[in-house]
Amino acid sequence: MTDSDSSIVPVKRRNGLRKDLREIYESRNILRSLVSKNLFGRYRNSVLGFGWHFVMPIVMLVVYYVVFTEVRASPISDFWVYIAAGIFPFNFMVSNLTGGAGAIVGNSGMVKKMYFPREILVLAHVISNFIVMVMGYAVILIIIAVTGYPLDWVPLLLLPAILLLMALFTTGYILLFSSLTVYARDVQYILSSVSMVFFFMTPMYFLADSVSGVLGNVIWLNPFTYYIEAFHSMVYFGEIPEMKVLLMCIILPLVSMMLGLAVFRRLKRGFAERL
């Protein structure tokens, strides 16, 4: 291959990515419609409607407070705050791990009947869940502040950045697994089983540093751990997360997006035939 030939590949890749981004922008009305459907469709015929997105986090927090302060005391002080700081981001990541894998398969009718950037299905799934999670987390922070828990607002300034990095990380692995699920439905079922492992191996109910040995190493191999520990630092401990945690929060979405986009772009041409 000559020097001129070797320079063609990256140029084509850049042009292809630029084309995809342009098509996504031109199809923004479809994206907006799908996000709206995800947000409002679930509770369309209920009395509270969209308000259920606020009620559920409050109910969950009340349950955590009663169980872990009155029923089953924990050695971690203000344990309900510790759980609340991490449980909602964790639910966002793990629910997208399982539900996001079916983002393409679950919309097979659209994929087979009309042309649009397939990435929109993934973006709609992530954006709608992200909006719900952010609203719930805002409610939780307000409740924590009202109860008199000493929040340090300086570390909380990093909160929007960590949330966005987590959303990018999530988008990357949804792109990966949703495209693989089109070709092998078993992927979604495997991820449902794996999600249970993440539930027990992510430090939501225990301190990450309290676990040592092989199990402690496994916990830090879990990518979810770094985001949960970042939220614990900012909300519960009132500290800026450790440098290794911050670096991993930045590196993970970069790797996730690069891998997810590469696989998704390669496989998406066969979606309609496989569905």
Rank of each mutant, 00 (worst) to 15 (best):
F79I: 06
N107E: 15
G100K: 00
Y82R: 03
V81E: 08
A85R: 02
P89E: 14
L97N: 12
G99D: 00
G99I: 10
N91L: 10
D78F: 15
A103S: 15
G99M: 11
I87R: 06
N91R: 14
D78A: 14
N96I: 00
N96W: 15
A85P: 04
F79M: 14
I104C: 00
N107L: 13
G86F: 00
G106N: 12
A84I: 03
A85D: 07
F92C: 02
A101N: 10
N96D: 11
F88T: 07
N91Q: 12
P89G: 04
V81T: 04
G99K: 11
G102P: 00
F92K: 00
I104N: 01
S95C: 08
Y82K: 04
V105W: 14
Y82I: 12
W80E: 01
D78M: 11
N96K: 06
V105S: 08
F92S: 01
P89F: 02
W80A: 03
S95L: 12
I83T: 00
F88P: 02
D78T: 09
V94G: 02
F90V: 06
N96Q: 12
T98N: 01
M93H: 03
N91W: 10
N96P: 10
D78I: 08
F79L: 06
N91T: 10
M93T: 08
S95D: 11
L97S: 13
A85V: 06
V81D: 04
G100W: 12
Y82H: 14
A85S: 12
A103F: 15
G106I: 07
S95P: 09
A84R: 08
I83L: 13
G86C: 05
V81N: 09
I83R: 01
F79T: 06
F79K: 05
V105N: 14
A103D: 14
G99S: 09
D78G: 11
A85H: 04
Y82V: 03
A103L: 13
G86Y: 03
A101D: 07
V94I: 13
V94L: 04
I104D: 00
G102W: 01
A101P: 07
V81M: 07
A84H: 03
A85E: 01
A103T: 12
G86S: 10
N91K: 13
I83Y: 04
I87S: 09
F92A: 03
G100D: 01
S95R: 13
F90L: 06
G100Y: 08
F88N: 04
L97E: 05
V94A: 11
F79D: 10
D78K: 13
G100R: 01
G86R: 01
G102N: 13
G106Y: 07
Y82M: 09
V105M: 12
N91C: 06
I87N: 09
N91A: 09
L97G: 09
I104A: 05
V105E: 14
G99T: 11
A84W: 10
G102T: 10
N96C: 11
